[in-house]
Design a protein around this nucleic acid. Structure first.
Lengths: 110, 110
DNA sequence: TTCATTAATCGTATTATTGCAATAAACAAA
DNA sequence: TTTGTTTATTGCAATAATACGATTAATGAA
């Protein structure tokens, strides 16, 4: 049915899945890495940096912004994006808790 | 077009996206958390634990197995799954590098 | 062998995602 | 105001993902 049954999972599980989903496309990974690398803010030259069309990049930026991982500032005709540090840390906490589950306890397969 | 243009990104970026994508559904998050919690191995009672139909769970398990994050052992008529520790650590390294990019360097928005 | 149990696979309906051309919107400069 | 520049939005085509009924495959028990 193509529709994830979110209501049968915990808020935490859904939150992890939402963050993970936004990282689930290399273009968005690339955008974020670039925003980290260029530590001054970056405008739509992401379109040149990455090889995708302008509407495509704009759409990916929208998703990242919607989740709160980046924020954008209008500067004349262009828009300047950067990592939202506060929310990035919140996301990192949630994801790390999931990734760092204690593996030493777990026994090997039967 | 519904088709991610993976060829224009680095192997690392695609790898991050692939791992993230598999975490991008709460059912798979839930399966993994359960396999961590029940530190002895777990069979298809994941179907009871989570509320999805047997073919659906089987499909999610297949994706997790395909990425190497879990492994399955046949035990009579049932199959016992567990976390693949070695690959989990590899995944964790790749994801952590991405999540732990130095945020202190980054300036705020313009 | 026959029957029951469990899991995988197949087929298919439905929704989601991706990508971009075309267009609109916002703004600066002339 | 008009013109050019930049970004967002719209609309649409194509592929991917989700879910599950029906079926098959594999195994153990009777």
């Amino acid at each position: 049915m193509g529709l994830a049954k979110t209501e049968m999972f915990t808020d935490q599980q859904n939150k992890i899945a939402l963050f993970a989903k936004v990282f689930g496309h290399p273009a968005r990974v690339s955008i974020l890495q670039h925003l980290f690398k260029i530590d001054s803010c970056v405008c739509g030259d992401l379109v040149n940096e990455i090889g995708l069309a302008q509407p495509t990049i704009s759409q990916h930026l929208k998703e990242l912004k919607h989740l709160g991982l980046i924020k954008g500032n209008v500067e004349g005709t262009s828009v300047c994006y950067c990592i939202d540090k506060e929310n990035w840390i919140v996301m990192k906490t949630i994801m790390s808790e999931f990734l760092n589950q204690d593996i030493t306890k777990t026994q090997d397969c039967c």
